[in-house]
């Protein structure tokens, strides 16, 4: 099971990289960054999986006494929570830059922005 999630995560990362490198529209490149992010999150959560484990939430199904043997690792999930929020901040900033760039040149095609290219 953990292998499926891991493979999907890696494929999503590659799809995001492909979108970043081949798309010409800036919005689509930003979407590519988001997809790359999502793939990384899937990989981190997949690495935290413990065979036969369940969500690290203690209730009537997973008692406080045998939590040690029944739950998956909570630490990478907490890290992914942090990573999602920071990814959101980065995406929002990229969108703001894209709006600024569109205001300058009235286009979002990356080929028209050659000022920083050498």
């Amino acid at each position: 099971m953990e292998y499926v999630a891991l493979i999907i995560g890696f494929l999503v990362i590659l799809a995001g990289l492909w979108a970043i490198m081949t798309r010409k529209n800036i919005i689509r490149i930003i979407i590519g960054f988001s997809i790359f992010d999502t793939g990384l999150h899937i990989v981190i959560v997949a690495l935290a999986y413990v065979k036969g484990g369940t969500a690290p939430i203690l209730d009537s199904a997973v008692g406080i006494d045998d939590a040690l043997n029944k739950i998956v690792d909570p630490v990478p999930q907490a890290l992914v929570l942090t990573a999602i929020v920071i990814g959101l901040g980065v995406t929002a900033l990229m969108l703001a830059f894209a709006m600024k760039m569109h205001k300058e040149k009235k286009t979002l095609d990356i080929r028209n922005f050659r000022d920083m290219k050498w």
């Binding site: 690290p56 739950i71 909570p74």
Partner: peptide, 8 residues
């Protein structure tokens, strides 16, 4: 009860 919240 939510260990992820405890960690975060």
């Amino acid at each position: 009860a939510n260990l992820v919240t405890a960690v975060v």
